[in-house]
């Protein structure tokens, strides 16, 4: 079999290899004084861009009521079966709201389908990404921990609206 060798022809200085080694050493030496790319985590926190799909949260209206109407669309669409909803009746004009709404963050895969399917823009993927804890129970987020004032989520709500409008045009 004919083999075509693709080796590079080395010059004498390259064959000696000491100059090449010195070249490499000079690169690594210069690297030592370049600015660091590591982020000092607990002090310097990463501000996630608006497109990040972090911890899903429930939107709380200005008057403290949930936007969610417990329609269970997210419960259906959730591929990881992380969402559990129990509905109850309210006295408001929108006569239905979740009595229990829990997202099991151990199961959640942060796919964002719940946000996309929600007809009320009530479940929103926030920029919270610090999702570690010591017990399993503490990672099942219930309604009290999920409800977030609409002010904190406005940016993401606007972003999703633009995104989905573009898709569905």
């Amino acid at each position: 079999m004919k083999v075509k060798r693709m080796e590079k022809k080395l010059s004498f200085m390259e064959k000696l290899s000491i100059p090449e080694i010195l070249k490499g050493l000079s690169i690594t030496f210069r690297n030592m004084f370049k600015p660091k790319v590591t982020r000092l985590y607990p002090e310097e926190r990463y501000k996630a861009p608006i497109a990040l799909k972090g911890q899903p949260l429930l939107v709380e209206n200005e008057d403290g009521t949930p936007r969610c109407v417990a329609c269970s669309m997210c419960e259906v669409v959730c591929p990881a079966l992380a969402i559990t909803i129990k509905a109850e009746e309210t006295e408001r004009y929108i006569e239905r709201e979740p009595e229990e709404f829990s997202i099991d963050m151990l199961r959640c895969i942060l796919c964002g389908l719940c946000e996309e399917v929600c007809p009320k823009e009530a479940i929103i993927m926030s920029d919270r990404y610090e999702l570690a804890n010591f017990t399993r129970e503490s990672l099942v987020f219930h309604k009290d921990r999920l409800m977030t004032p609409i002010k904190e989520l406005e940016g993401r709500i606007r972003f999703t609206k633009e995104k989905f409008d573009k898709w569905h045009r």
Partner: peptide
């Protein structure tokens, strides 16, 4: 337009 609320949905 309250299909999300309506039980018949």
């Amino acid at each position: 337009l309250d299909c999300p609320i309506c039980d018949k949905a």
